[in-house]
Each structure stands twice: as C-alpha cells, then as structure tokens.
Simulated assay, not measured.
Amino acid sequence: MVTATADFVVPDELLAHEPPEARGVPRDAVRMLVSTPSAQRHQLFRDLPTVLRPGDLLVVNTSATLPAAVPTLDGHVIHFSTCRADGTWLVEPRLAGRAGAPTVGPLDTAVAGQRFALRGGGSVTLLSPYSQGRLWVAALSFDDVPGYLSRHGSPIRYSYVPRSWPLSAYQTVFATEPGSAEMPSAGRPFTDRIVTRLVSAGVQVAPIVLHTGVASAEGHERPYPEWFSVPASTARAVASAQRVIAVGTTVVRALETTGGAAGSGWTDLVVTPERGVRVVDGLLTGFHEPHASHLDLLAAVAGPGLVSTSYAAALAAGYRWHEFGDVNLLLSEHDVREV
C-alpha cells in the first residue's frame, strides 16, 4: 500500500540541518501540527499538556541511541542496525564522505564474505544480503557491541546534517536502555518540565522499549525484526486509558504486536491501512520522507486522508523534517481542546 502522501517533495530548506537548540529554539519549543479531521492547528510542542485531556495515555520509547556508525580502516563506514535472535547483526556498509562529512550512500559494491577491519581491532564480515544493495547479515569479531560502539562509534547522520553533534543531541529524556541505531526521535521534544505538566494535567506516561534499526531511505524495502518489550505496568495502563497516544512509530509497532498486552521479543509486524490498528488511538511523530514505509503506519492510525491533509499543511507552513525537526500530532477525534 502506498499512501496518498507518497509523491510530495520536501524542499531542502525544510530539512532540519541541526538540533533546534543550535538555532536558539529549546527542545520543547519546536512546532507541533495538531491534525484532526476538522482542522490543522499550528502550535508549539510545549502546548501538548493543554491539547491532551485527563485520562489520555502517552506511551513512550525508553530505548537509548547507540553511537552506531564506525569507520573502517579502508575508508568506509559501517552502520550497526539491529541485533538478530541468532546473534548476527544487520549492518549497512556506507561510502564515507570527505573528512568530517556524513556518509554519501550505501556501498553497493559490497559482496558476501567481505571483511571490514574496524578501528580498535574489531571486524565485520558480510554473510548474506538482507535487502538489495543496502543491509547485510554480518558476523562480528566482538560480543559486547554497545561497549565497542561507546568506545569507537559516533551517532549515525545523513547528508542533511552537515556537521557532527554529540551523542547527547540524539537522546531523548526517556532514554535509559541503550540499543537503538537511530534515535526514537518523536520523543526528542519532551523535557522533564513537560512531563511534569502532563502528569499534573491528568495525562499518564508509560514506557515500552523498541530498539530501532537504521532508517530506510528505500521505498518498499522489506522491514526487519526489531527487539521490543511491553511491561505489564504499561499493559495495565493501556487497558484503562481513555485514549492511547503513541509517541513515535516504534511505539505503535510494539503495542500493536502484543495487542496492548505485556510481552517481549523480536517483532516483524508491518502496520498498514489494510491491517489497521487495534490499540493506538493517536500518534505523535515527526515528518517522514516521500515513499517511506512509515507513511503507511501513519495512515493506519489516522487514515490516508488525514495524513495527506496534515502533510500538505506542514509543507505550506514550513515545518521542518527529520530527527531534529518539528512534530505532528495525529488525532481522530473532533473534540480536541483549543489552546
């Protein structure tokens, strides 16, 4: 399924090239488009406690971002994506840019059996292709991947982020369990102050964990399993909530995998409009690229029409895209309170 939003174009000036703090904008002051069937409201993220209502449940991802990009000794870069149940990893060999620049694209000349020597004495050996020209199943020469990455890695970044930023720029206030190749970025605008205001307003906050792999820049690329955990306490909160609002597509994937019950393991669930959603009533998310598989998940939660309308409004109003950008709150109800 391709949503109606698939063919839009994002101008370069709408790509978030740096954290909002570097532009003098606090984390919780990024823009927030509140999208309902009746209207699109242009607000700031710090308005969230007045937009939601008592009895709502926000479910957040507590996975912390790994410094998952490691240079090879022959001048390439390996992006560590996802640990698999059998102990192998999905990795993405990338072409390095000039010194200090982000990578310029997948290494499409990689072949099975190719070994990449890494700094610090580690190595990665490609075993078999997982997705055409991009992800590979690989064996590693070391067991403690988070420890190795903490010593030798840096945060993954792409061409729209021209300079490097510290790992702290890629962590959310909820980050407690290292494991994500890339930041669960829908949670980035939250601050301790916003969480306190939400709880004071009667909005519950509950955690799940889903360790994200590398983002897909390829249309229709098959998804890959990601490890998740839904605690029993969160399952109880879901069962009693008036509305369940997922903070990020990762939360939707975890909750829809278990049907809102407690559970853990690897999920390969693909959420599409044809499948629909059974647990989630709303979604706080960033803005995604044309043809990204995330758009189908958004359409499953909010409907293709509302997603199309919200993206048209965001483009017209100059919202910023990607992990350092603005956010979109998709709600199906007509009775969202005015700020």
Rank of each mutant, 00 (worst) to 15 (best):
S81W: 03
S81V: 05
S81Q: 03
T82E: 05
C83L: 15
A85Y: 06
A85V: 14
D86Y: 08
G87M: 11
T88P: 00
T88K: 09
T88R: 14
L90S: 02
V91K: 00
E92K: 01
P93E: 11
R94Y: 03
L95M: 13
L95H: 01
A96Q: 01
A96E: 02
A96R: 10
A96S: 14
G97P: 04
G97K: 04
G97L: 11
G100I: 08
A101L: 14
A101I: 02
P102Y: 12
P102R: 05
P102H: 11
P106Y: 05
L107W: 12
T109N: 08
T109G: 07
A110W: 11
A112N: 03
R115T: 15
L118Y: 03
L118R: 03
G120R: 13
G120D: 13
G121A: 11
G121L: 06
G122K: 06
G122Q: 09
G122S: 10
V124E: 02
L126W: 12
S128K: 13
P129R: 07
Y130E: 15
Y130A: 14
S131A: 14
S131W: 01
G133D: 08
R134M: 12
L135I: 00
L135K: 02
L135W: 04
W136I: 09
W136D: 05
V137I: 13
V137Q: 10
L140P: 09
S141N: 07
S141R: 08
S141T: 13
V145Y: 01
G147Q: 09
Y148V: 09
Y148T: 07
L149A: 03
L149W: 05
R151M: 10
G153V: 04
G153I: 04
S154K: 08
P155S: 03
Y158N: 07
Y158E: 13
S159H: 09
P162T: 02
P162E: 09
R163A: 15
S164D: 13
S164W: 00
W165V: 13
W165T: 04
P166H: 06
P166T: 11
P166I: 12
P166N: 05
L167T: 00
L167N: 02
S168T: 15
S168C: 04
S168G: 07
A169E: 14
A169M: 07
A169L: 06
Y170L: 05
Q171N: 05
